[in-house]
Write a protein that binds this DNA or RNA. Structure first.
Lengths: 208, 208
DNA sequence: CTCTGTGAACATCTTCACAGCT
DNA sequence: AGCTGTGAAGATGTTCACAGAG
């Protein structure tokens, strides 16, 4: 399969949500125009995105909601279940542990770790916070697919190195600091402070 | 000033963090190559980004850490303080309320609201959760600059309409659903489930 | 007639490469 | 010599516009 751009993949995720809404409403087909108006993009954009994986639509009609949703789930790797652990059981880690949208998409939280004795042993949405000293052993035995980093900024880079050394290939970082991952490791960051700064920029230039 | 691309602004935020690190270390100049290696981009990219706002560097030497940091703060609108309210005092709202990185950047949380009686009156990092029925009155009196949406997905769009009608121009949405804002309103979304799906996609195609 | 699929045009973003200042 | 600033080239992403299937 050829290379799909990140912006395209991002839109595929959105399309999937719209398809699921349509399915819930019992609708069986959807047109590129429908998807476009739901997502605020152009219909040509939608068709280009979908044409990456062959001709799935029917001319004059649109796309089969079920077939398209299935195909997108396949592309995104959502047909399987992903084992996820969270490191850091502070406010953000705790919010992530109980975040419904993860489970709905097949991301299963199989462990949460912290260094603070006050947090260890606490149950977060059914998962007991474990001592971070058990992390290395658990990485070996559980072999999770993805690690969510929810520790303070200064602890994030050492933690990243630790988990990648243990063979973790996918990391989602919530610490507000840029990290450097070895090649072969996919690292994404959700930086809420940075998003606020982007908002600040837009508001500032809109006023000028 | 001409239009700066979002990707450029995102990098400016990063540069600012590196500049602050440099300042903390007492360093007075920094080269495009230094910034590039810190941020994992090319030095040409850095120079292009910085050249958007004139010639700030000194050839043969680099950029003045202080002058550049100041200029970036100015561009991003970080020289002022922003008044921020949070709607939704669940796990995510609570995590946002105590998130240190916001305060450090001049984003001041001036209110947090919820509909659940069990949450109203609770203190989150010094701010008392107020009844969401007080929201409209407070939007009028406090006139916050930015609203953070931390309510369940189905409540997000109605809330967005409510706050934009009250004159809010900047919204950061944490609900895992795409929203539609009226023109003149800047809306950004942090969608953690979507970020995990992007990770899932990359891991899946890397395996194939 | 409606709506898909897609080459071609266009727009945007990134990298190259080098002139020119210090 | 070192490093910036920037046109030009190259790469990538988006929109247009229309042929063609149903």
């Amino acid at each position: 399969m050829k290379q799909i751009a990140e912006s395209t993949v991002r839109r595929l995720s959105l399309y999937l949500r719209f398809l699921e809404d349509y399915r819930r409403q019992g609708l069986e087909t959807i047109s590129s125009g429908d998807l476009a108006s739901l997502g605020g993009m152009t219909s040509a954009q939608v068709r280009k995105d979908l044409s990456f994986f062959g001709s799935f639509g029917t001319r004059g009609l649109g796309y089969s909601v079920n077939a398209l949703a299935h195909r997108i789930r396949e592309i995104l790797g959502l047909e399987r279940e992903w084992q996820v652990i969270i490191v850091g059981a502070g406010k953000i880690g705790a919010a992530l542990a109980q975040y419904r949208a993860f489970g709905e998409r097949g991301f299963r939280i199989v462990g949460i770790y912290d260094v603070d004795p006050a947090r260890i042993g606490v149950s977060l949405d059914g998962t007991i916070v474990k001592d971070q000293r058990e992390l290395d052993a658990d990485l070996q035995s559980v072999k999770p697919d993805i690690v969510l980093i929810a520790v303070p900024a200064e602890a994030a880079q050492p933690l990243l190195e630790r988990v990648t050394k243990a063979g973790i290939r996918g990391v989602l970082n919530f610490a507000p600091t840029p990290l450097h991952a070895p090649s072969g490791v996919t690292l994404r960051s959700v930086d809420m402070a940075l998003e606020l700064e982007l908002l600040s920029y837009t508001l500032t230039s809109a006023m000028a």
